[in-house]
Design a protein around this nucleic acid. Sequence first.
DNA 1: TATGAATGAGATTTCATTCAT
DNA 2: TATGAATGAAATCTCATTCAT
Lengths: 204, 204, 204, 204
Amino acid sequence: MAETPAASTGECKPMRADAARNRDKLLKVATQTFTDKGADASLDHIAKAAGVGIGTLYRHFPTREDLVMAVYSRQIDALEERSHELPAQHDPVEALHEWMRGFVDYYAVKQGMVTLLRSMMQSSPDAFAEARGRLRAATERILQPAIDAGGIRGDVSAEELLRALGGICLSSGTPAGATASAASTIALVDLVFDGLRYGAPSAS
Amino acid sequence: MAETPAASTGECKPMRADAARNRDKLLKVATQTFTDKGADASLDHIAKAAGVGIGTLYRHFPTREDLVMAVYSRQIDALEERSHELPAQHDPVEALHEWMRGFVDYYAVKQGMVTLLRSMMQSSPDAFAEARGRLRAATERILQPAIDAGGIRGDVSAEELLRALGGICLSSGTPAGATASAASTIALVDLVFDGLRYGAPSAS
Amino acid sequence: MAETPAASTGECKPMRADAARNRDKLLKVATQTFTDKGADASLDHIAKAAGVGIGTLYRHFPTREDLVMAVYSRQIDALEERSHELPAQHDPVEALHEWMRGFVDYYAVKQGMVTLLRSMMQSSPDAFAEARGRLRAATERILQPAIDAGGIRGDVSAEELLRALGGICLSSGTPAGATASAASTIALVDLVFDGLRYGAPSAS
Amino acid sequence: MAETPAASTGECKPMRADAARNRDKLLKVATQTFTDKGADASLDHIAKAAGVGIGTLYRHFPTREDLVMAVYSRQIDALEERSHELPAQHDPVEALHEWMRGFVDYYAVKQGMVTLLRSMMQSSPDAFAEARGRLRAATERILQPAIDAGGIRGDVSAEELLRALGGICLSSGTPAGATASAASTIALVDLVFDGLRYGAPSAS
DNA sequence: TATGAATGAGATTTCATTCAT
DNA sequence: TATGAATGAAATCTCATTCAT
């Protein structure tokens, strides 16, 4: 995966204004497109929709993976931020519950990270270590305090929680029918949350 | 989606021997291929690998969906069978636990239904109602007795349980790394199983 | 072009009853199909529509041309018959006029010989000599008496008249619009008929 | 049917030199190929013969119809031009006669518009309105003055004349044999021309 | 004789990727 | 830097034709 000129970090040369504009437009369109059609959507179409030539897309994102990665990374930015805000507003266990619901309901489903994830899992097994790492860290930032506070069992790792939440997201829009999703998805999250409390110190 | 001549039911004319052989070979190869590369693998390659002309593949499965559907349906046959055997060998709650572990560990993951599912969810939202229906019925056959026996909470539907299990399967082989899977997947199943027991009549 | 077992002439072995039935059904369906979709329609579809296997079609008509030829030949049978009846019912010049109008309006257009002709001209330049010969003979049977009777110029051959009529048929359903056809086609025939009388002995 | 960048009009951006070269080469080869084998010739072969990739052909002419249309349109360009030149060189009636002979003999037959037309009529009934309109206008430009000058009957429309001429062209290369064509085609044109004069004011 | 399964050669079309302008 | 033209490798699908049953 080739290195692309730093986008936000501002190292290197500070990227010409129009170039940055193009990059932004591309990311925005790509997010939408990947959300709609999965990560194997036509790059040509994305370029067209962003109003730039296909060559420009390739300049900014030399490989498809670079583009997917950039889109995915952006989604995670939002989740990361949330992991910093929640603890300030709720007690640890409640924060965990909020995090779980929010993760599934808003960030993953509504923001379209799901389709993206599905596609990524299909093709690129583990090329997303960095982004995934940030996500795990964010989850830990929420999970650990809840365990420490004593309402949640300690034998579940952030990794596993993440997988549970991810799984729920992924199974949204299953053949089962997209309609049941809204309510039933929350029910599932609560089911897992109950599982997390069961047998935990505070419940004994 | 055109109907293909009944394979196993044996009604109609009893399908020529070579035709049946070809159909079988195709299904076997397709199952393997879809498992490896997802449901958008090249049909050409499948035909080649099965040792038949591409035309033969199209005769048996006029559309890609017909083939995917046939493969998927076969996978479910095994699960259906299991839903009949388990209750005879275990008490209801234990049978449920077994079913859940088996579903995820063996049938879904090892048999490769996962990759297939991922692809299907991507492209054909709800063309699999029949197969899905059979799967739900099988799950119900396991879940309901456990609820009736009094060890499992009654406010979770077969549909939701299926989604939970499906979700766990789908998140196997996540960017997180395929290695953690084995153990962590079982852990997740147990987490959900615990959730099912939590607050159930027998636990109060 | 391979020889097919005589259909109506009854030489050779007198063809089994079911075989004859199949042959007839095939011809009927083929006529309709060629009329609708041109002479390069799918033979498979014709066989299916006729309710016989593709192998049976090939047994009766070893090449596509054999089938097209048989269909075309049948159409001409009707025209030939008409060339025998008309002279008995009209005076020669009037018979010619009738023949011309009838040729274009009924036999060619309504019977669908047009599409067939178009296709044939595309692919098989001169493989239809025999049928064409019968058609020319029929035309001559109508044209010559009219010339002899003195109302029609003698420097136009049956061949040319046939081409004129054929041309008019062929240009029916032209991009120009299929609607104008009915009236305008008759107008064209009359235009040619006028040309035939112009400068003829009776007109001087 | 997608719009292709203007070829000759030169508006828009002035098309890259190599693109224009390719487009031209494609049109030239396509004209020849369609002339020889009809409008359903292989696009692959055309691309190969033009020395470009198949993708390039599709870039310039997104559908087969776009290509056919472009070829047809070009042929009509020549006829249009002729309709402007003839009146300057001949008196109206003579110009009409010239136009008719030229149309059939040179432009249609020798330039190969015939095969193209046959194919088009088969498949694309009325997608050629624009080109057809130009052709009708050209015919009118020749016909009307002849009628006004008083040597030609006024009850025949340009549309009908066009159909007559078209019909004659189409019946060239009939099963009858391509040999008779040359002379006999002219004879037919003259027959129609005579029909146009018959009963006209100047003849009474 | 009849059937329809199998074959495999095309035809169309779509895209990722490279490069000339 | 940006553009979009060109390329050509797939992939899907359709049929004519042959042959086993």
